[in-house]
């Protein structure tokens, strides 16, 4: 009998600190599957900022740099600019990318920085115990919106892919989810496309992954998947918001 599904090589064989049912574990595996398939682990450098994924340097087999909160895209820019032939990706949470790190996020888009940004949107600050994030849904209860997010006072959640799609340097802005196996397959394809874009020097690829946070949502892993499907996807429609390869196809 042949093994048809196994632990990716570039994912270190350790148990993770993520909570049971947390989407981070799935996305880590997808990134590593793509790295294995492209055979680029030796030429890849990961940048992980502060958040639940901060300890991903214990999980990614490639070289990893831990960045200050919100600054991973800038750190990744520094890495990529002086190592243009290496593959560079950042793996960030929503608080990191769309709150404190918004400027860095926007500017790797404006510069068309040739990196891949893996953006985990789970509508909360997981590591610090479930505070409101820039992606927390209207009415959603969090540690800092105990009565539900009130858009009058806490503002509206940011749709990052739509925002990034307006930037000329963005080559790929796609939103995926991990709430079901078909969606997980789709997510992997998107991540793969991001790394291929980087190989072809097409500019910034940002893949937004709707993910779960059972612990801070106070839901079971299964209920969390439902929350993604029933609550998040309507507000954050999945799909490709910009894809220069598709446009190339049209032009030719």
């Amino acid at each position: 009998m042949a093994v048809v599904f196994d632990h990716p090589k570039s994912l270190l064989d350790v148990s993770t600190h993520f909570c049971p049912g947390c989407g981070h574990g799935i996305v880590h595996r997808l990134v590593c599957e793509v790295i294995d398939e492209m055979g680029i682990e030796g030429d890849t450098i990961g940048v992980v900022p502060v958040g639940c994924s901060v300890m991903s340097y214990n999980y990614f087999g490639c070289d990893v740099i831990e960045a200050p909160h919100g600054r991973a895209p800038a750190v990744a820019t520094g890495v990529k600019r002086v190592n243009p032939d290496k593959f560079v990706f950042s793996y960030q949470g929503d608080g990191d990318l769309a709150a404190i790190g918004t400027a860095e996020t926007v500017h790797v888009g404006t510069r068309g920085e040739n990196i891949v940004v893996i953006f985990i949107n789970n509508t909360t600050y997981g590591m610090t115990g479930g505070q409101m994030a820039p992606t927390t849904l209207p009415g959603q209860v969090t540690q800092t919106t105990p009565f539900g997010r009130n858009v009058e006072t806490n503002g509206y959640p940011i749709r990052v892919c739509e925002m990034m799609a307006t930037l000329s340097g963005t080559a790929l802005a796609q939103r995926v989810a991990i709430d079901s196996v078909p969606h997980i397959r789709e997510a992997k394809k998107a991540i793969r496309k991001g790394f291929e874009n980087q190989k072809e020097k097409r500019g910034l690829s940002i893949i937004e992954v709707l993910s779960t946070c059972p612990t801070n949502w106070g839901l079971s892993p299964e209920e969390s998947m439902e929350f993604v499907k029933d609550q998040m996807i309507p507000y954050y429609p999945l799909g490709v918001y910009k894809d220069v390869t598709a446009e190339e196809g049209k032009k030719a």
């Binding site: 740099i65 600054r71 800038a74 750190v75 820019t77 990529k80 600019r81 290496k86 400027a103 500017h107």
Partner: peptide, 17 residues
């Protein structure tokens, strides 16, 4: 860079390599 904060972090990235 877009700010001094981004600039020092780009230095951090480059220096890391």
């Amino acid at each position: 860079a877009e700010s001094e904060i981004a600039a020092i972090n780009m230095v951090l990235g480059a220096a890391s390599t």
